[in-house]
Design a protein around this nucleic acid. Structure first.
Lengths: 346, 346
DNA sequence: TTGTACGCGTTATCAA
DNA sequence: TTGATAACGCGTACAA
């Protein structure tokens, strides 16, 4: 009873043309510019296409049109809420223009990122987004050589030279440091995810240092802990920073929310009361941040908006429009309950 | 309008052929079957290709080869750790065979899922994975008609008829219910994410009911709360279930970890001690589950393994091998600290 | 409004 | 081992 076994292969435009008694040109027109085809003929073609289960094959189409209607995005990993949000928004924005989004992961490895970019160019992407600054020099040269519009997202490109949609990581961490300084904190620690191959994190550290320096303060080496990414790293980082020599920090800045959650949990394990004994800040405002007790003070970048803007920029480039090459969304401070004035010195 | 002034266009195989003094056929061979080309000629071709920045265009290749080396996967959303893990593993597994993975999101909407499947077929995917059972009838008919190997992942297909790699949701929730029954719980509540268009959740409910029935017990309607997905829904669900009429449940089964986290937080807000006053279970073992205090008792399905197996199945189908059509991974109980014997009745 | 005919970039067949 | 040539499926001038 399997009718499928009879069919030698998928239907082509020619099969539809034959069934509808027209030429392949008319089949193409009926699908791509319906207004250029007589209504009666159009209906006949579409009916035949439906009957045969014909779907135009993108490879043939791409070859003839000289564009694939595929856009690519290279991200570090799918396993992070902020990246997933951004990619989801990009996908939706591109879909409105019938552009399919191809997603590639670099796993934070510049070589894999370069490989992904090459794969995407081979796939003939019409446009390309790369999430985060990739330090690999020359990564975009081959992209530029092919005249493929591209954009860097999530980070910023202070050195210029590349169009980007994102936010200023240094400014964001300046803001959150300023928040702590305004509360009266004098001794601040910081827990960082790996800075290797990740300019965004380097910028965050620089933002903290810059804000502290404005008050004549600095980050003691023993109060700076760079470790892995995640809750366990946050726990470990907090122990490291609080057990260090010298004056104990009254506030801990974490480079992301997961580290901050780890630090918060570890502080509670150590018997500290947050925020009275210790202020803690995160970054990203992942969904669980608001649900903790106490709720996490953090910063939020509108990642969906970044994704939409990046896709919009690329689409307008594809349409031949010149648009501003650098768009920065200001992240906003989400002032919840893990920050407060430091205890008075005894 | 036309920005392309300096460079006429991207290099083609013909340009490389001319530069290397060979034919396009040899260029193709040098890249795809190097052993069939004299070493000296091969080096000359590859050098010319590198010099010209030539990358073979996948559209032309797809047309000639009659396959695209693209596989597709349709998932509900990127924003969930379990799905992201599975897709990441699939992507890595396919990459080993030089197959690019195209990711589409259905947003839990059967119509969008069907649309994504059609998009993928238009893109000429060689194989297709769909995460979760899609109730839309006929979804796979068009896939079958094109002889495209496909597999359902994450869920199971008890009705049969479709190859799948996943786990038995009903059996998993039978297991976790059994765990609670063995601890002595008699009154159990359940908090569910939406069951609409999600057969996996329906199966989870059935698993709970089945295990309870074996002890002559049942799930009172007022102890069953179906709401949204997420921590807030878990909080709301717990209040709903605990404030209902009749005997108060001593254990709450949640259909996923986020709901369980919400229930746990809300229980603590209400002044209850978990697990002494109330046992709570989740499902998925997301990364934060182990970090909570108390750590969440939950179940873990090896999603990376599911992704690998699904990709492996499709690859072997593409290679013409017949393989078992249904693979079920048994999820394992992660017995942490949110479950215990119920308090003695006073 | 519709059909003819060619080209898009690559691979496979076949002959040399 | 290499080259000439014919597909692959579609879109689009151009002609009718």
């Amino acid at each position: 009873m399997d009718v499928n076994k009879d069919l030698p292969r998928a239907a082509r435009a020619q099969d539809v043309a034959k069934a509808a008694g027209v030429s392949t040109a008319t089949v193409s027109r009926a699908v791509n510019s319906p207004d250029k085809v007589a209504p009666a003929v159009r209906d006949r073609v579409l009916a035949a296409a439906a009957a045969l289960g014909w779907l135009p094959h993108a490879a043939g189409s791409a070859l003839a049109r000289k564009r694939t209607s595929i856009a690519g995005v290279v991200i570090p990993t799918l396993g992070q809420e902020v990246f997933a949000t951004q990619v989801g928004a990009m996908q939706a924005a591109f879909a409105e223009h019938d552009i399919t989004l191809l997603i590639g992961c670099s796993n934070y490895d510049p070589d894999q990122a370069a490989q992904q970019v090459r794969t995407m160019l081979t796939r003939g992407v019409d446009a390309l987004a790369v999430l985060g600054q990739i330090p690999k020099p020359g990564l975009f040269e081959v992209v530029q050589a092919r005249r493929v519009p591209y954009v860097i997202t999530y980070g910023s490109a202070p050195d210029g030279g590349h169009p980007c949609v994102g936010f200023d990581n240094a400014a964001a961490f300046h803001t959150i440091t300023r928040h702590l300084l305004d509360l009266g904190h004098k001794v601040v620690g910081m827990i960082l995810q790996p800075t290797l191959h990740n300019e965004r994190i380097v910028a965050r550290l620089a933002g903290v240092r810059g804000a502290l320096a404005e008050e004549g303060l600095g980050l003691r080496p023993q109060h700076l802990c760079e470790g892995e990414y995640g809750i366990q790293a946050g726990r470990k980082g907090l122990r490291h920073v609080l057990n260090a020599d010298g004056p104990r920090p009254s506030a801990i800045i974490c480079s992301n929310d997961l580290l901050a959650i780890g630090a918060l949990l570890e502080a509670q394990t150590m018997g500290l009361t947050v925020p009275q004994d210790l202020s803690i800040t995160g970054f990203d405002d992942i969904s669980i941040a608001a649900e903790l007790d106490p709720a996490l003070t953090t910063m939020k970048a509108d990642n969906a908006e970044i994704g939409r803007l990046a896709a919009g920029y690329l689409v307008s480039r594809l349409q031949g429009n010149a648009t501003p090459s650098e768009v920065l969304i200001p992240p906003i401070l989400i002032n919840r309950s893990t920050t407060a004035q430091p205890r008075k010195r005894s």
